[in-house]
Design a protein around this nucleic acid. Structure first.
Ligand SMILES: Nc1nc2c(ncn2[C@H]2C[C@H](O)[C@@H](COP(=O)(O)OP(=O)(O)OP(=O)(O)O)O2)c(=O)[nH]1
Ligand SMILES: [Mg+2]
Ligand SMILES: [Mg+2]
Ligand SMILES: [Zn+2]
Length: 583
DNA sequence: GCCGTTTTCGGCCCGACTGTTTTCAGTCG
């Protein structure tokens, strides 16, 4: 885990402590609004742009969601490294009770009763109590409830508690949406939830269907390709399990005229929804998944924009809907005009079969890039330093001829570019004379990912000092859920990127999303220039720029922050400035 | 526990589904 991704270690610790307080208070039967206050304090600590470990006491309550009580606890944590409320709760709430709420359908109220009335303090004890008939015998419970809990317990054994990398879920979601759209009874279908917001990991897949005939859609769902089984559901929603990967899918049916309001609801996040709905309430309105209402009259709901505008807000991009200040920013007109896919003038990282892992010819890649209406496309085949059939000097000379031959009929400017490999000492594949022959050089780490922080940091800083290195590709090298980011002093890297005029890539490959939204935010705040890249190895992957744009949005990046939102002249000026050196 | 262009007290998002409580609380989205 790269600590550099965070605003501060203290903020993360505060988030954890407030979350735990909220959870334990709930198990302890506390007032639910008090619980929510601590949940919000946790979210506020996570979203804070300042280090709460050093902010002056008087200014702590300026943070939305931090009042006098929370501020005192922050001070207490600073001075003693602990919070007495949390210690008390840990002592009062038996440790085994917490894991009980992980069982589907078992919430804080029942967990508490199981412990107090049956002495259940673990999942094993719960299983035994169900087998003994003690659970069914509790007042207010019965045989059915006990059996549901048994089923929930058995599902807990699998991997379904885990979150899934977004790159694994996206293809499944697209297949499911396509099949739902093809049903005659469905007017429209779309995925929503954390996937639409482009979170890095997905807990479950949420799919919305617009239909006048939910019964017909529901009847067709068990036969859809991606669906393994229907687990539960009613007239308006279904819960199913996926076949390809072990993930839950929530499918929600709504009338077509409520599409916008329903998309708002199902896209979330929950905290964003609550924030927006509170805003509606303060205006004497009510927002639900069927529309925005004044008394019994619907005043908005067919499109998302209609809903936001009726609440005096600009439409907020799904990637921003995390309740990290976007509603307040929208209210005051300070929501950044975040980068959109249409702002892109080209793509600065992509491959052809000239080098080892490209899966399409240069002609095919260029044609696909041109068909997107871009001004330019950089072909960044790998160089010799990488053991996957990278090109040597002669190879690039031959590719240069092919590019020259293709240019007159390409319909798009082709940048003769390269993806260099950054060796452990920070050097790259070619010397300056050879590098000067390229229109653009992207450099990235592909090997020796487990070196210590100081080595990796120096490695990247050295590469950025090279006047021919214009972009650092996929800075951390992480593969979501599969390979951790390299250990790096991100603040130092970002500062040096600004100083040397080196761009930092937002690699849009769904397996990477690197920079992450979090790091984008950090880079943008420091004034760094970004690129948004597909890293396409075949034409179908050019659309990775869209996940890249969404990730940049999560970091509140504007088009002005993004190098490949500049026209060809602007791009050339950036490249030349790096080569000729600055101040 | 937080918060205020109604408010410093009294509200706090809103709905689907389940089970057994004959009228709704708990859980989840
Ligand atoms: N208004 C409101 N909406 C909610 C609430 N809980 C969930 N939602 C909405 C917003 C969520 O994004 C959406 C889907 O719920 P999920 O539990 O699947 O969450 P989400 O997809 O955001 O994250 P995930 O990756 O699945 O954990 O439903 C709630 O308490 N109130
Ligand atoms: Mg979800
Ligand atoms: Mg869900
Ligand atoms: Zn690449």
């Amino acid at each position: 885990m790269s600590r550099g991704a965070l605003v501060s270690w203290t903020n993360t610790e505060l988030e954890r402590s407030f979350k735990e307080i909220a959870e334990l208070l709930e198990l302890d039967g506390a007032d639910r609004f008090r619980v929510r206050a601590y949940e919000r304090a946790a979210a506020a600590a996570a979203a804070a742009r300042e280090d709460l470990g050093t902010v002056e006491r008087e200014r702590l309550t300026e943070v939305e969601g931090v009042g006098s009580s929370t501020a005192e606890k922050i001070i207490e944590w600073r001075e003693h490294g602990s919070m007495s409320l949390l210690e008390d709760l840990r002592a009062r709430v038996p440790s085994g009770v917490r894991e009980l709420t992980g069982v589907p359908g078992l919430g804080p109220k029942l967990a508490r009763r199981l412990h107090d009335e049956l002495g259940v303090d673990s999942l094993d004890a719960l299983r035994a109590a169900i087998d003994a008939g003690d659970v069914a015998a509790l007042s207010g419970l019965g045989a059915k409830r006990a059996e549901n809990l048994r089923a929930g317990l058995s599902r807990l054994g699998g991997k379904d508690a885990d979150r899934h990398p977004i790159g694994d879920v996206l293809p499944l979601a697209e297949r499911l949406v396509r099949e739902l759209e093809e049903l005659p009874s469905a007017r429209a279908a779309a995925y929503a939830g954390s996937l639409r917001r482009l979170r890095e990991t997905i807990g479950d897949l949420d799919v919305l269907v617009a239909t006048h005939h939910p019964g017909d859609v529901r009847a067709a769902v068990p036969e859809l390709g991606p669906v393994a089984e229907v687990v539960s559901g009613g007239d308006r929603k279904l819960h199913v399990r996926s076949r390809s990967i072990d993930i839950g899918i929530d499918i929600r049916f709504v009338p077509p005229d409520a599409w916008g309001a329903a998309l708002c609801y199902f896209t979330g996040s929950k905290a964003h929804n609550v924030r927006v709905r509170e805003r509606a309430v303060r205006r004497g309105l009510s927002l639900n998944e069927y529309g925005l209402w004044r008394d019994e009259t619907r005043i908005a709901g067919s499109t998302e924009e209609e809903v936001y505008v009726a609440l005096d807000l600009p439409w907020i991009s799904p990637s921003l809907r995390e309740d990290t200040g976007e509603v307040e920013a929208g209210d005051s007109g300070h929501l950044p005009d975040v980068v959109e896919p249409a702002d892109l003038c080209g793509d600065l990282h992509g491959h052809s079969d000239w080098s080892g892992d490209g899966r399409a010819s240069l002609d095919e890649m260029v044609a696909a890039a041109a068909s997107r209406g871009w001004d330019y496309w950089a072909v960044t085949d790998h160089a010799i330093g990488l053991a996957i059939n990278g090109l040597d000097t002669d190879g690039f000379a031959r590719r240069r001829e092919a590019i020259a031959e293709l240019r007159p009929r390409a319909g798009i400017a082709i940048l003769d570019a390269v993806e260099l490999n950054i060796a452990v000492d920070g050097s790259v594949d070619f010397d300056d004379a050879e590098l000067a022959g390229f229109d653009l050089c992207v450099a990235a780490i592909h090997t020796q990912m487990d070196r210590p922080r100081d080595v990796q940091t120096r490695r990247v800083l050295t590469a950025m000092a090279n006047p021919h290195v214009h972009v650092i590709g996929h800075l951390t090298g992480r593969k979501i859920g599969r390979r951790p980011p390299i250990d790096l002093d991100v603040d130092a890297v970002v500062a040096e990127a600004v100083r040397t005029g080196t761009a930092l890539e937002v690699n849009g490959s769904p397996a990477r999303l690197d920079l992450s939204g979090e790091l984008v935010r950090k880079a943008v705040e420091a004034g760094a220039t970004l690129t948004i890249s597909s890293d396409a190895h075949e034409p179908g992957e050019l659309r990775n720029v869209e996940t890249g744009v969404g990730t940049a949005q999560r970091g509140w990046a504007r088009a002005a922050d993004v190098l490949n939102c500049r026209d060809a002249d602007g791009l050339r000026a950036f490249v030349d400035e790096k080569r000729t050196g600055r101040g």
